[in-house]
Design a protein around this nucleic acid. Sequence first.
DNA 1: GTTAGGG
DNA 2: CCCTAAC
Length: 692
Amino acid sequence: MELHKRLDYGFIGYQVPHIPRATRSARGRGNIRKKSDSNKMCAFDLLTTVAGKLLLEGESTSNSSGKDRSVVVKDTAETVKEDVDTPLKENPCSEGCQERGFFISQIVSEAPVVNHCLSKSTDTLSGPASVITSSDCSEKLGSAEQFINGERKTENRNCSTKVEHELSGCGDFSSCTLGAESKKQLKINLSNDATITTNKRAAICSSEFPDPWDRKRSMLVASDNTVKLSLSTDPDPFGSFPVIRNDVQLANKDDDEKSCGCTQPSTRNKAFRPAPRVGDWRMRKLQASKYWEVNPQSDDEGHVNVDNETRHIYQKRENVYTSERSQRDFPFKKRKLYYCNSFSNSDGGSSDGICSSPTKDLNRDASGYSLASSGARAAAGTSIPKGASASFRSNDSHVKLKIKSFRVPELFVEIPENATIGSLKRTVMEAVTAILGGGLRIGVVFQGKKVRDDSKTLFQAGISHDDKLDALGFTLEPSPSRGSPPLGPEGRSRVLPCETPQPLTSRCSPGSTIIHNGMQQETYNAFPDYSGTNLSNFIESDHDSAPSPPDASLEKNAADSALVPVAAMDAEALAVVPMRKPKRCETVQRRIRRPFSVFEVEALVQAVEKLGTGRWRDVKMRAFDNAKHRTYVDLKDKWKTLVHTARISPQQRRGEPVPQELLDRVLIAHAYWSQQQARQQMKHQSETRLLL
DNA sequence: GTTAGGG
DNA sequence: CCCTAAC
């Protein structure tokens, strides 16, 4: 059902302002080792990683090598689109940046089948490479797709074709060869329909690939069941992109636990919960900080079941932490943007698939995500810093970098036409933030002009016709709120993710969509019959109170506007998108704001009229017993605000207007009970005096 | 666990 | 909504 007319915007990419960042640059320490790989993971893994890289390094990649690689998996199921080593038109990507972008719609990983053949060296210490693969997996590459200047180029490939993956994030592909012997197919069902087909037992041999980017070589090493990954980057020869050496180490160590203060539960059933802050590198790293243990048993059916796998990635702590965190304290609230919620406004069509996906296969298990992200994380770490300028070493093997620019993958935003510019910005912001981690604000440019009035509706701004959408652009601007954060010298940059209580809190995204649903259900029957009033509608109203009811007020709509990153992108693609927040986060997670509906207000008023203002627990039980999300403290607070609202002029009131009649009752009841309370006190006092 | 009140 | 003090 389409409740709103929506506009879809596609983002192919934009430029991001400089973002200083400190990173470690230890070199030669990046080994990613998978204890046992399974074909299951490989595909997913790799793709994620690659995706992560692409997402973060697309820019540099293209610039440094003039090539663009992206792994694209189209949601057309059964096909893995992989980007090819096609020369990309040099595109400085300045302004519009939309000419060329990564279209990571269904990023899945194409497992670079590496394995059998990889036995070569184990020496990964100095290799800047970055190839993540697993054994026994190969994929049947459907077609490779590359976006160039907005166009998609597809190339069909053969299994035996030489596959190139951009693994090092430096824009270089490693050469992988798919064995022709592929027999079984491994299917990875991604969200919707995205399916990656992989051929089991196909072998890709690849080990050393020159990394044009820096004068080093990327090495992919794998032996037996161990794959070592070494991620590191060096300043690109062109000098325009500072690169970070990312030495990620996925090792089979147990001491990992220590390095990461927190442990993530391997699974979580409640609906999939989006990661707290997507942009938090730390988090990502964190999640990656355990070594993975993947079920070596390959599923003949080929279904990649990320769920039941436990992964632990070990990462050198020092390599992991950066000051990023402190800079990216961004509270993510509507994760639903990435994981459509059931009541999303989006029209069933395309979004449907997208929406459902997260909850399916991949999402079931958080660990799945972690896996995905781990790779990405690693990649991310590597890619993030890209600026051109200076990258210098500081005492602590840290490198301070400036991000001149990097590209954000294409996003699709769906938002009601009557949504405001402000909401549009927010929507985009959330999507982008999820990727970049916050710290940025979104600017809207339409027909060459910057649209500054956030209260204007899209319609009013003229942004409502498809034919004009081309004139719509977004800009990423540094958030004023957070000035250029001093890149932290050691101190900050080293804080362990989990060990740092604070910021996490705000970032932990409050319930995901799914969660909302749950709450929503809980709210049903909020008002028992005995509450005695015409609250028959209440249930519905309660609905409205939910975070994103389809036909809520504009404000709500804005929130609802489904932002649908193209398919797979939502989750795994962006490995960037953290899968689940550390436990600690959850406990501190702030609840989602659920404005009281008029019906609720009425119920509250009525209850208070009857019970008084000092018995919130009773009020709760009487009128909101079934509204689990309303605590008596909430009711008390609401009453407080109601009283305040009733006292101020209507012009000063915000939010859904409360009928004056109700406000009057509020004042009357408040006055009455205040008086009663006063009397009670008087009485009490006099009694005590008498006793004395 | 509730209340009350400040943030 | 959160957090806390106070009960």
